[in-house]
Design a protein around this nucleic acid. Sequence first.
DNA 1: TTAGTATCAATAATCATTCTTACCTAAAAA
DNA 2: TTTTTAGGTAAGAATGATTATTGATACTAA
Lengths: 149, 149
Amino acid sequence: MKGVYSYSMDNSLRILKEHDIRPTQQRLEVHLILLKQAKHLTAEEIYEKVKVKMPAISPATVYTILDLFKQKHVVNEIRIQFDKSCFEARIDPHHHFLCKHCRNIFDINIKPCPALETRTIEGNLIEELQGYFYGTCRKCLEKNDDKPV
Amino acid sequence: MKGVYSYSMDNSLRILKEHDIRPTQQRLEVHLILLKQAKHLTAEEIYEKVKVKMPAISPATVYTILDLFKQKHVVNEIRIQFDKSCFEARIDPHHHFLCKHCRNIFDINIKPCPALETRTIEGNLIEELQGYFYGTCRKCLEKNDDKPV
DNA sequence: TTAGTATCAATAATCATTCTTACCTAAAAA
DNA sequence: TTTTTAGGTAAGAATGATTATTGATACTAA
């Protein structure tokens, strides 16, 4: 257990250093949570998880850290839900799907996606892109669950 | 002038009726503004514009109307800006570009966009999709304006 | 007419996020 | 070692878009 934890923490340490981020305890913890989770977490979910290890941390600190991580490109921010942001450690461009029923978010792979393969569109330079899909996921379709929550 | 106005208002009236929306004064006015503008407006911008004709209207009413319009598919909501929504009368699926410099929003046409052409992805049923591109628009590139606002 | 329904304005409430301030710590300089 | 400096953080207040609530009014159908 200690081994796994250390390994991941070392991973976070290396990643932060590689991106010129001074590795404080708080930053390491936030990064490790995103790395371990391998899922999309809201700022509040991250805050709740950090608080287990560091009860004194404040939400503002989590927001500050996530902001820094965004700037340094170690996390990706997703606004697929209208009322709050999610964050993920995966940083290569890819699309997302939000199920209206179970509210789960899935990564989407569109094989040849022209949007993901160009640097410019109609003369405009693309520096970031987000593809959001809304609908009913496979599992909820199988359940024949037609009413959105 | 009267002619143009009436024509547009008739347009709005027809569109609302076609979508089973009882045409009240407020709803017609909000719809007409979006129709005439042919651009992306925030809820607040719409509110400011309606207020010129109907000084008694409240922001809550505008939100309610826009919500109804969304449900009935007469407007499209765009969350390309993180802190507020924009609305447009164009309802066919298309992507958007936000320039980090001039903050303008442009419609984007990707010729063969697989995302716009499928109903399902990996077994998930797509009911709505939003493609958001962030970067530097053609005009700002020409100005060699490299610093985001 | 009259009951029932829908709409709307106004205000208050919510809630994610940001701002402000002050404290603390760690590294650099003396 | 002490001083200095800069950056990081906690706490709580502030912001601001959006939503909920409520009471009044207008429409609809019998």
